[in-house]
Design a protein around this nucleic acid. Structure first.
Lengths: 108, 108
DNA sequence: TGTCTATATTGACAAGCATCAATATATAAC
DNA sequence: GTTATATATTGATGCTTGTCAATATAGACA
């Protein structure tokens, strides 16, 4: 059983100013979405219900494989995507918590 | 008379992948929120119903006046805040459209 | 006019980041 | 074992960005 609510979640930005610690954490999430290539990458993963194989993410972006891998790592470290090995492939899928907190903040 | 709805608004990220043009535009909004100082700055403005005088935004952030002015310009250029001169002071307030589109995208 | 105050701009610097080619690692299949 | 494929890491490069001190701009008021 998991906790139903994220205890770190902040109220909408219209209700209270952020403290430094929350700003640091949430800015990391927004920064991860703040690059056009990475945002498209994230949207490619999110738009497939079961996630995406990394091998399917290189072509559509017009960037080299190392660059895509670098961005996937950034999304993962920001808490936005999960990765799971499946044989020779690695499967990426949305990790909803970070996205939820970010959405809650700006959902006014 | 202004258009009542923003025709550029995108469906949630779980429904469709972004094209390059939309990714460019939305990444700009997320990038503006992707710095801790700027995110706190934005939250300070957003948490006051009538907006904030720039003069009230320098103190709480622990940054120099030029740095705060620089970040205010970044928020304004990203479409996140409006500015309005009121005598000797300049009033900043949330410009909801860009925030709405960003929130719609990640509100899953 | 001149002075005071609020805000913006300029210029410089260091740190960070997006990108790629080359290489490494890891799994699968033979 | 070897070979092939998928992904990650390393190292280098050029561009961007956050920051401040110094300066400029612009409005208010005497």
């Amino acid at each position: 059983m998991t906790t139903p609510t994220d205890t770190r979640c902040c109220p909408p930005v219209t209700e209270a100013a952020l403290d430094e610690e929350a700003a640091q954490r949430l800015a990391g999430v927004f920064a991860a979405l703040g690059d056009p290539v990475r945002l498209r990458l994230f949207s490619l993963i999110a738009s497939r219900p079961d996630g995406s194989c990394a091998c399917d993410l290189v072509g559509p972006l017009g960037r080299s494989q190392p660059t895509v891998s670098h961005h996937l790592r950034a999304l993962h470290e920001a808490g936005l995507v999960d990765r799971e090995r499946q044989g020779r492939w690695i499967w990426y899928s949305v990790h909803p918590e970070a996205l939820l907190e970010a959405a809650t903040l700006i959902n006014c």
